[in-house]
């Protein structure tokens, strides 16, 4: 079971996660309007920018984050922004959406000039997240854990970051045990997705390069 302190940490992170999300008008725009390849590209850039702004607001609410060295805060956010973005997007694709919505979104991403070799692993990742049937709490905690990765480039005080990440990991581990009693591997699988995210992050950097070129 979670201690009162752990329950508080969970509630705090979950509330922040639910509160800071992409505005609905922007999400609607993605579904309703028809755009050319170039407009798709610009819309995805706008979405990505908003994603980062929302992510920063969420991160500020993670207990202890603002007490970290300012440059370390930036290093953590820079290192994790893409991974957090993929996690959030995975949720969009695994949620039950009105008929046809996920197809429209997928079509838009496929028609934004991104090469197929980057698209396929991304949708594979979304599928693998879907298979885990994660609860909102798991999404919120996993996002916080991703952000609080002490091994990101340019982080100076790794120990301080570890001290923030460890309690969140512990809450996630306990939460998985109580919420998925018949799936003892749930916690390990969630951590496995973080490894997959690192690969996507790496691909993403290559993808941006190919996008810039084209």
């Amino acid at each position: 079971e979670l201690s009162q302190e752990q329950q508080n940490l969970l509630t705090y992170i979950l509330d922040a996660y639910n509160k800071h999300r992409i505005p609905q008008d922007m999400a609607k725009k993605l579904l309703q309007e028809q755009f050319s390849t170039e407009e798709n590209f610009l819309l995805l850039i706008e979405m990505a920018t908003t994603h980062v702004q929302v992510l920063v607001e969420f991160t500020k609410k993670i207990p202890g984050f603002l007490s970290l060295d300012h440059e370390d805060q930036i290093a953590l956010l820079k290192g994790s922004a893409v991974e957090a973005m993929f996690l959030r997007s995975a949720q969009v694709f695994t949620k039950k959406m009105p008929h046809g919505h996920s197809e429209v979104l997928e079509e838009r991403i496929r028609k934004s000039g991104i090469s197929e070799e980057f698209i396929t692993p991304m949708f594979n990742f979304y599928k693998s997240i879907g298979e885990l049937q994660m609860r909102q709490e798991e999404h919120a905690l996993l996002t916080a854990i991703t952000i609080l990765s002490p091994d990101r480039p340019y982080v100076k005080d790794q120990r301080a970051v570890e001290r923030l990440q460890e309690p969140v990991l512990d809450v996630l581990r306990r939460f998985c045990k109580t919420q998925h009693p018949h799936k003892p591997q749930q916690f390990a699988r969630l951590l496995g997705r973080l490894t997959e995210l690192r690969t996507l992050n790496h691909h993403h950097a290559e993808m941006l390069e190919s996008w810039r070129t084209s």
Binding site: Q53, Q73, I74
Partner: peptide, 21 residues
Amino acid sequence: PASNLGLEDIIRKALMGNVEE
């Protein structure tokens, strides 16, 4: 426009901004 800003600029600006309640 936001599309001209790099990731680090967006993060720095957002970190400096006030939290919207």
